[in-house]
Design a protein around this nucleic acid. Structure first.
Lengths: 112, 112
DNA sequence: CCAATACTTAATCATTGACTTAAGTGATCT
DNA sequence: AGATCACTTAAGTCAATGATTAAGTATTGG
């Protein structure tokens, strides 16, 4: 089963928080340091670091420390995986709808 | 802020569990009753109902009771929303990569 | 009517998640 | 060297999650 995939657990869990989504949002424009990420948020620096750890575990970003500054960069590959899972299921359901609509749209023939 | 959106919290939270993803997976083939959903899972019926409640809160499915049987059906609209959020951010990051690659690919000109 | 079926509610419990404050580490500036 | 900066670690609080068992409520078949 692909649904027992801990990677998907981590991915969606990481995305299920407004602070983390906001961080992703701003990282989408380019790499940022830990302080950069923390500045607009009304939470403590350790809290920000915990969010970074969650995003890193999910594979959504990687970070590198140079001197005393840690810079975070998004990794699009993990996003692609999360997107693909949803996308596949959505297409299945929509395919169903299409078949239903097709059925409903066809002229009655055994009604006699 | 779109990232403070509780709907996205609920959506991604709902997707961050293997049991729930497996339920979605099987519902993608068509509507199922609560018992149908419970059968392949090794958890109690109340646990399954709690998962259904989470999925319903997320807007991922709706259910209807007729007689003593409750039937669950997926709602693709919520999936579309979750997919759209990721998709937008992924495109942004990939756009960045493309610009980086473009930069790296260009011939050196100030190297003298 | 009675029993079986299909949930549903309630109460409980262990674990995890999202913070906090306080103290510590190492790099960089003066 | 000493102070400041940019994290980092540690420890603890508190609410939410995911599960359980036990008991309850409607339907429905005999």
């Amino acid at each position: 089963m692909m649904n027992n995939d801990p990677a998907l657990d981590h991915l969606y869990h990481a995305l299920a928080d407004g602070h983390r989504r906001s961080m992703i949002d701003r990282l989408a424009a380019g790499p940022l340091t830990v302080s950069d990420l923390a500045t607009p948020l009304k939470i403590s620096l350790p809290a920000v670091m915990q969010h970074i750890a969650v995003l890193e575990t999910a594979g959504l970003l990687h970070s590198e420390k140079r001197g005393r500054v840690r810079t975070c960069t998004l990794s699009p590959a993990a996003m692609t995986k999360a997107e693909a899972w949803i996308s596949d299921r959505r297409r299945l359901v929509e395919g169903q709808l299409t078949r239903l609509e097709r059925y409903l749209a066809q002229p009655e023939k055994d009604e006699k």
